[in-house]
Design a binder for these strands. Structure first.
Length: 587
RNA sequence: GCCCCGAUAGCUCAGCUGGAUAGAGCGUUUGCCUCCUAAGCGAAAGGUCGCAGGUUCGACUCCUGCUCGGGGCACCA
């Protein structure tokens, strides 16, 4: 429409060059910033000032004059420096309202984009319970998955389980040491071991099941080991890494590979099932838990390395095999096979990402901690070297969540065992508040999570504002029944033209933006945009609620207003479902 | 040294990929319940958008250089 008007305007110039330039422009039509300007606005006139060498307001007038008659637009006007504002006919909004109720929970869903996206998120090492930092990943990842699904992508959420490698050795060793302590063996716990109480609990179960099967004298255990790290008078001695590795080796010698595996699996199974329960209770459900062991067992690492070698991107140096990452934009080359013949974590990583691609995913979306930013360049380099487009990997980095109790920073280290778990947080503030708090901020923003504040059950907590809007609507319908009225939906639909107050118009207009917000927020992987929208929608509703009484004598007006409330309720529910918070009927 | 993220109201943060008078919550001042839940609504005060240049009809937004904060730069995972 605007394009037609522009063409006519362009034709009014005798100079061919100028009119061609005008035709080439693609001006934006966007939502007006404020409803007092209209519903949509275009900056076309301002873009033309230079080419046409006229004042923007004059250009705007010419464009409007050239505007074709149509059934959508009520009126158009010029404002400010030269914006062309359009006001839609009210029927357009009434139709949108009917869309909401017809499509119900599907309202806002976009047509299939025919794209498969694999979203990997949380993927915390299974060496202990999830803490508040993981909670942010879980809430964000789950919301992004929901957003992408709604926006028409085929989404597969995945948790990568690091169940191979050194951390697992340390976990098994830590468990064994706790088991020994329960068996009356005197010892000091390794500095680099996992010190949390949950390990003691696992050790207790192990002891119940296997009794003294894995008990040995402390002489046998601790003789000839390197010194553990110690700080005496401010001077550090020993090496915690060497010590724990030696201790792990000793553990294997004594209890055997099989025994070691029993201990490891006991710890792993216990921790993993705890993590699964925790996430499940939090409403975060991964479609798949991908075990790192599969990369070895199914030959996926070998497959990836073969591909790299086949493309001539691997060389040997100092007895190790290196990938020429520098040829693909990384700042240094990366070891894939160590001098001792063991493949590196990086090798697993690219093998995993290659496998994700081979499963037919168009886009690999990784949600990682900001401390992982160094991996992006090298994994992309790996993908490219294996013949996959580097843009197929998109990484969203999550800035740290710092926990406060009032003004006091809470220390969080998995090793030390002094941390607040996700489960504790959920118990304190509730799932809804936790889910909302986590995604309220952009992922690129540091999150200060104040427990004291989040615990407060008053209006400082934004979750109540949103839920209250929903509960209020539910209450209206209850009151309606108490007053012996019956809601007539078709009467409501037919009389929507009666809902014409200023606040109703703003509410309806704002509500009709929902599909656009879904699209925008999915494109930016930004659930906080949706949260912001839901908050504003709630505000528009509360404002309407205060100015227009819904349950009135007039049947047609009452039904029409109820119709509007139904629609608002539906949009709130749809939005809440994406964020993962409940829609309570009363508060 | 190099790389990533941030800096916007007293506090915590948005700002829709360059547009109109830079917004919201909390806090402060204040008005509104004989009427569907006051966990609400209305009004007011509060700003050199970290600093300095540049591009543009137009910059919080893009570019360059600084300053300050957070994080990262392994034959660890």
């Amino acid at each position: 429409m605007l394009a037609q008007a522009l063409e006519q305007y362009a034709a009014s110039f005798t100079d061919e060059d100028v009119s061609q330039q005008i035709k080439d422009l693609s001006p934006h039509i966007e939502r007006a910033r404020d409803t007092k300007f209209g519903d949509f606005a275009s900056n076309a006139a301002m873009m033309l000032t230079k080419i046409a060498k006229q004042k923007p307001r004059d250009i705007a007038e010419s464009i409007i004059a050239a505007f074709p008659e149509n059934e959508l637009i009520q009126e158009s006007s010029i404002a400010g420096p030269g914006f062309i504002n359009f006001r839609l006919k009210p029927e357009i909004f009434q139709q949108e309202l009917q869309q909401v109720l017809n499509q119900a929970s599907q309202y806002g869903c976009q047509a299939s984009k025919g794209q498969k996206v694999l979203v990997e998120y949380v993927s915390a090492n299974p060496t202990g319970p999830l803490h508040v930092g993981h909670g942010r990943h879980a809430a964000y990842g789950a919301s992004v998955c929901n957003l992408l699904k709604t926006a028409g992508y085929q989404v597969h959420g995945e948790y990568y389980v690091n169940d191979a490698g050194r951390q697992m050795q340390i976990l098994a060793t830590s468990t064994w040491i706790r088991y020994l302590a329960l068996s009356g063996i005197e010892l000091t716990f390794p500095v680099n071991g996992y010190q949390g109480d949950y390990i003691i609990e696992i050790a207790r179960l192990l002891k119940e099941k296997h009794s003294d099967k894995f008990v040995f004298d402390s002489d046998k255990i601790f003789s000839d080991l390197p010194d553990d790290e110690k700080i005496v008078g401010g001077v550090k001695t020993g090496d915690k890494d060497k010590y724990i590795d030696a201790l792990a080796l000793r553990t294997k010698e004594l209890i055997g590979e099989d025994g070691f595996q029993i201990v490891l699996d006991a710890a792993l199974d216990s921790i993993l099932s705890d993590i699964k329960d925790d996430l499940h209770e939090f409403g975060v459900v991964h479609d798949e838990w991908f075990s790192e062991r599969r990369l070895v067992d199914d030959g996926l690492i070998k497959h990836a390395l073969d591909k790299l070698e086949a493309n001539g991107t691997v060389y040997e140096k100092d007895g190790a095999k290196w990938f020429k990452a520098t040829d693909f934009g990384d700042d240094k080359d990366r070891v894939v096979v160590r001098e001792n013949g063991v493949t590196t974590y990086f090798a697993s990583d690219i093998a995993y990402h290659l496998y994700k691609r081979e499963r037919g995913n168009h886009l690999l979306l990784d949600i990682l901690g900001s401390d992982h930013h160094g991996y992006i360049a090298r994994v992309k380099a790996g993908l490219e070297a294996m013949g996959e487009p580097p843009e197929s990997l998109e990484v969203r980095l999550m800035q740290f969540a710092v926990l406060y109790r009032g003004k006091e920073k809470v220390a969080m280290t998995t090793r030390g065992g002094d941390f607040v778990s996700l489960r504790e947080l959920r118990n304190e503030v509730g799932n809804d508040a936790a889910r909302l708090f986590y995604v309220m901020r952009s992922n690129e923003q540091h999150l200060d999570f104040d427990l004291e504040l989040a615990k407060k059950r008053d209006n400082e907590n934004p979750v109540y504002y949103l839920q209250y809007a929903h509960a209020r609507i539910c209450r209206v319908f209850k009151t309606l029944t108490e007053k012996d009225y019956v809601y007539d939906e078709s009467a409501g639909a037919e009389n929507l033209h009666l809902v014409d107050s200023d606040s109703a118009y703003k509410l309806i207009s704002f509500m009709s933006r929902y599909p656009e917000i879904i699209e925008l927020s999915a494109a930016n992987r930004a659930p906080h945009t949706l949260v912001q929208y839901l908050r504003d929608l709630s505000a528009e509703f509360h404002s309407f609620y205060n100015s227009d009484k819904v349950i009135v004598e007039n049947d047609n007006l009452r039904n029409a207003r109820l119709y509007l409330l139904k629609a608002v309720q539906q949009v709130l529910q749809n939005g809440f479902a994406i964020i993962g918070i409940s829609a309570p009927e009363q508060m």
